[in-house]
Design a protein around this nucleic acid. Structure first.
Length: 276
DNA sequence: CTAACTCGCCGTT
DNA sequence: AACGGCGAGTTAG
């Protein structure tokens, strides 16, 4: 599968941004290419390589009518136990391969004092990432703009931990989650969060690849029907992008809603996965 | 028929 | 006490 480095991701993201902000004008390929400053042939190529469909089709695929249909087809049952038996065949389920450990209150409150964290950088189909782990498991995985910027954010998040760059085998395991045509490897996450956040993140692991659900449905799944607003903020604090698939949660209106790592990235993930 | 706005929700800081 | 990766109902086009 095609892998996006920082520059390619920026180009694709700009293309997505242009299309969605000019969708009423039915933009033709030449207009798109001109807007992002690349040739028509190259624009066509990178777009279809990385998004999976042509620029023209793309607009149709992110329409909120289509999103609503996807919600209706599996939505409500997506977060119930029943999917594990029947519906899971349509998409890989992360919760069968992911174990969650939560940090002790000491490490939790201190910003990671006494923790030794190894981190490494990688490119994925959805852009460059940083992966970090403790001796217990993956503690951090985010999309990044640059290595320097990514490291600053990691440092900010674990201000009192000891950090060093080191590409461990467990990082490669995490990376396998980004590849479709390859079996998943079992992995442990080492998470820092409130009990409410942990419940939310655990629920997200039940959404199969290609599936979508709503913030309200997640709230229902954890028995806090009216806390959908709080669910939104908890989802937004997910420290392990992609493996904990927070990008599969959208608004009940069919609008995609916000995304910590950029609206364009959420559109890319949403489109790419619903083609799966 | 959407799009924009209001007002209520509730866990965090 | 204020603020969100929200949602349902209402109103303006």
């Amino acid at each position: 599968m095609a892998i996006l480095n920082a520059k390619k991701y920026r180009d694709v993201a700009r293309a997505i941004h242009y299309l969605t902000t000019h969708n009423d004008a039915q933009p033709e390929l030449p207009a798109l290419a001109k807007a992002i400053g690349l040739s028509t042939s190259y624009t066509q190529k990178i777009f279809s390589d990385y998004v999976g469909i042509s620029p023209k089709q793309f607009l149709k695929y992110i329409s909120s009518e289509r999103a609503k249909k996807l919600l209706r087809s599996d939505g409500a049952s997506m977060l119930t136990a029943s999917h594990a038996v029947g519906l899971s065949s349509t998409g890989r389920l992360h919760d069968l391969f992911v174990t969650v450990e939560s940090m002790t209150s000491g490490a939790y409150k201190s910003g990671g004092l006494d923790l030794t964290i190894s981190y490494s950088f990688h490119d994925t189909a959805f852009g460059p990432i940083i992966i970090a782990s403790t001796d217990q498991g993956i503690c951090y995985l985010t999309f990044i703009e640059s290595k320097a910027h990514g490291l600053i954010e990691l440092t900010h998040s674990f201000a009192d931990a000891t950090l060093h760059e080191d590409h461990l085998p467990v990082h490669s395991k995490a990376l396998s989650f980004f590849l479709w045509d390859q079996p998943l490897e079992k992995i442990t996450l080492h998470l820092r969060g409130t009990s409410f956040q942990l419940k939310v993140w655990q629920a997200l692991l039940q959404i199969p690849c290609g599936g979508v659900t709503t913030y309200g449905d997640v709230a229902h799944a954890i028995n806090c029907d009216k806390a959908y607003r709080a669910v939104g903020t908890a989802v937004g604090k997910n420290p392990i992008s992609y493996i904990i698939p927070c990008h599969r949660v959208i608004r009940s209106s069919g609008a995609l809603g916000n995304y910590r790592w950029g609206e364009e990235r959420k559109k890319l993930l949403f489109t790419r996965e619903s083609l799966y």
